[in-house]
Amino acid sequence: MQGPLFNSAALVVGGVAGAMLGRLVPRRVKEALPLTCGTLSLGIGAVLVNKVNALPAVSLALLGGALIGELLCLERGLEFILGWARRRLERFRPRHQADPRADGFVVKFVTITVLFCASGMGIFGATHEGMTGDPNILLAKAVLDLFTAMIFATELGYAVALIALPQFAIQGALYLGATSLMPLTTPAMLADFSACGGIIMLATGLRICGIKIFPIVNMLPALALVMPVSAAWARLFA
Results as ranks from 00 to 15, higher is better:
F116T: 09
A118C: 09
G120A: 13
G122K: 04
I123S: 10
I123T: 11
F124S: 09
F124L: 11
F124W: 07
G125V: 07
G125F: 06
G125Q: 08
G125A: 12
G125S: 12
G125D: 09
T127K: 02
T127G: 13
E129G: 07
E129T: 12
G130S: 11
G130W: 08
G130P: 06
M131P: 05
M131C: 14
M131N: 08
M131V: 15
D134Q: 07
D134L: 03
D134K: 00
D134R: 02
P135G: 02
P135V: 11
N136E: 05
N136T: 13
I137D: 01
I137Y: 01
I137Q: 06
L138W: 00
L138S: 02
L138T: 04
L139K: 03
A140E: 11
A140Q: 08
A140K: 01
K141Y: 04
A142I: 02
A142M: 06
A142W: 01
V143D: 00
L144V: 15
D145N: 15
D145P: 07
L146F: 15
L146R: 03
F147W: 13
A149T: 11
A149K: 05
A149E: 08
A149L: 04
I151H: 00
I151A: 09
I151Y: 02
F152E: 07
A153I: 08
T154Q: 14
E155M: 08
E155C: 02
L156I: 04
G157P: 04
G157I: 14
Y158W: 15
A159F: 10
A159M: 13
A159N: 02
A159G: 02
A159S: 13
A161Q: 00
I163R: 01
